[in-house]
Nucleic acid binder design. Structure first.
Lengths: 168, 168
DNA sequence: CGAATATTTCAATAAGTTTTGAAAGTTCAA
DNA sequence: TTGAACTTTCAAAACTTATTGAAATATTCG
């Protein structure tokens, strides 16, 4: 396989994966591009490589920076801004987990907590079923939260290696 | 808080969470509705409760059945079909993990495997950076895959309880 | 069988999301 | 202070995805 084909395939696959996870395709593609770039890239180079507009490039690079997986760097002697991706995939994974937890899981936990405080006849089967479901989800969510926090806190690979030893 | 408000809030929160995870909003809302229903519900009741069309209800209920988290049941004496959701949240979680892994992670692993076989000058910094990235992602993906498989296989709660003991 | 009831399909439409590109804003060297 | 180089913004357009509803198909019962 030629390098250029492999590169295109990788960018495409990463874009697809991103799309399925609610990250927009272009954002994931820019990330892919930067992941395999040996040097920092400018906005212009990104636009050119992916054939996207300036606005689109700007917006998605900024979002990648918000997620903490891309950084602006200054190249001495250049006026332009350049960008690099965090290359340690473990760190990328924890950054994404942290961000999604904050944006998605935490608000749901908050709502669930509220929903425990309903009033009404505790014998009504609708109310009983509701309370039971909410409580089960809450339990599950807290466990997930704990596991996720452990993952996020771990800066090294010990999480998985320990885990794998235990579950085999 | 009134029961009807709590119910509406729960359905809305679950729908939002689903949407962020690439599951369509209506599908997640139907799931929420069935999760808290004390009895099986008919298509009609679902349409009414969520104010959606027959086609929409039909399509999303079917998809939930594909995911293995909703089942058709026959109520004696009734001509209509009724639906129930799996109430064990742990099982719901593993079913979702299984399905997403199959649909999303597995194809990416397959592509990555291909991408190792690129030819070209091994000293070229672009090619070196590319190979390194692919290999790192592959390693990470395999670890994730292993963890996910363990989660999916576990029918009981031992996964989390063991995990939590270990990571503390 | 045939009528009544229930379910599924799917083309048209609506809703939602992403992308563009031009204009406005910023920075900085001269 | 000016203007060239660069970045950011945002309304409109393109594209994608979800929803409707009516027609087609299937199922059940007398």
């Amino acid at each position: 396989m030629k390098f250029s084909d492999a590169k295109a395939q990788f960018i495409q696959a990463w874009g697809l994966l991103g799309a399925q996870w609610g990250i927009n395709r272009t954002m994931a593609q820019i990330h892919a591009l930067l992941l395999i770039a040996p040097e920092p890239m400018s906005a212009e180079e990104i636009m050119e490589a992916l054939d996207i507009s300036r606005g689109n490039a700007n917006m998605n690079v900024r979002e990648l920076m918000n997620w903490g997986i891309v950084e602006k760097v200054l190249v001495p002697g250049e006026r332009k801004e350049f960008f690099v991706a965090e290359k340690d995939i473990w760190k990328v994974g924890t950054a994404i987990a942290r961000e999604r937890k904050k944006r998605e899981l935490d608000p749901v936990l908050k709502v669930l907590l509220q929903l425990n405080k309903i009033d009404g006849d505790q014998k009504d089967k609708h109310i009983k079923a509701f309370r039971e479901t909410i409580q089960n989800i809450q339990k599950f969510a807290h466990q997930t939260d704990a596991a996720l926090n452990a993952f996020i806190k771990s800066e090294e690979n010990w999480f998985y290696s320990t885990l794998l030893k235990v579950i085999r």
